[in-house]
Computed example of a mutant assay.
Amino acid sequence: MWGSLYLYVPFLPIRAQDLGASNTMVGAVIASYAIAQVALRIPIGVASDLLGRRKPFALIAIASAILGALWLGVSPNPLNMFFARTVTGIAGAGWVALSILYASYFTTKGTAGAMSRIMAVNGIALVLATLTGGWIAELISPAATFYSGVIAGAIGFLLLLMAPEPPMGERKAYSKAIFLSVARTPLLILVSIISVFAHFVTFATSFSFIPIYAREIGGSESQIGYISTAMFAGGVLGTIAAPYIARRIEYPRAVLLGLGLMGASAVIVPALDGVLGLGVSQFFGGFGRGLEAALLMTLAVLSVAPAMRATAMGMFQAVYAIGMIAGPVVAGVVADSVDIDAVFYLATAIAMIGGALVFLGRIPQRAE
Rank of each mutant, 00 (worst) to 15 (best):
F157P: 07
V182H: 06
S181K: 04
G169P: 03
F207C: 11
P166L: 11
I189T: 07
T185P: 01
F209Q: 11
V182N: 11
I217H: 10
E221V: 06
R184A: 09
G218Y: 11
L160F: 00
G225Y: 10
V196C: 10
I227F: 04
A163D: 03
L187W: 00
S192Y: 05
S195K: 00
K172Q: 05
Y174M: 12
I212R: 04
P166R: 08
F200M: 14
G218C: 06
Y213R: 15
A204T: 10
L158E: 01
I212C: 06
S181I: 00
T202W: 12
L160E: 03
H199D: 06
E221D: 14
H199Y: 15
I178F: 02
I178H: 13
P167H: 13
V191E: 05
A163H: 05
F200V: 15
V201D: 07
E165W: 04
L190N: 07
F209R: 08
S206H: 12
V182Y: 02
F207G: 03
G169K: 08
S206L: 12
F179Y: 13
Q223I: 00
V196Y: 01
F203S: 13
E221G: 02
L158I: 12
E165M: 01
H199C: 06
A214W: 05
F200R: 02
A173I: 09
L188Y: 00
Y174R: 10
H199M: 14
A183C: 02
S208Q: 07
T185C: 05
M168D: 01
Q223H: 01
L160S: 00
M162Q: 09
A214V: 05
Y174C: 02
A204P: 02
G225S: 09
Y226A: 14
M168V: 13
S228R: 02
L190Y: 00
L160N: 01
P166M: 06
S228C: 04
F200T: 11
I194S: 08
Y213C: 08
A173Y: 00
S192D: 02
T202A: 13
I189N: 01
F203I: 08
Y174W: 15
V191K: 04
S206Q: 14
T229C: 12
A198G: 15
L190R: 03
A177M: 10
Q223W: 07
F207T: 11
P167K: 14
E170I: 12
T185I: 02
L159I: 13
G169H: 04
Y226F: 15
F157S: 05
A204C: 04
E170G: 08
V196G: 10
K176Y: 07
R184T: 13
M168P: 01
S195A: 12
L188S: 06
V201G: 08
G169N: 07
F197I: 03
A173M: 02
T185G: 05
F203Q: 11
V191L: 08
Y226P: 01
I227P: 08
P167E: 11
F203V: 07
S192P: 06
E170P: 09
A183V: 09
F179L: 14
K172G: 15
Y174P: 03
I194Q: 05
S206E: 09
L158N: 01
A204W: 04
G169V: 09
L161V: 12
A173F: 00
I178E: 12
S208N: 09
F209A: 14
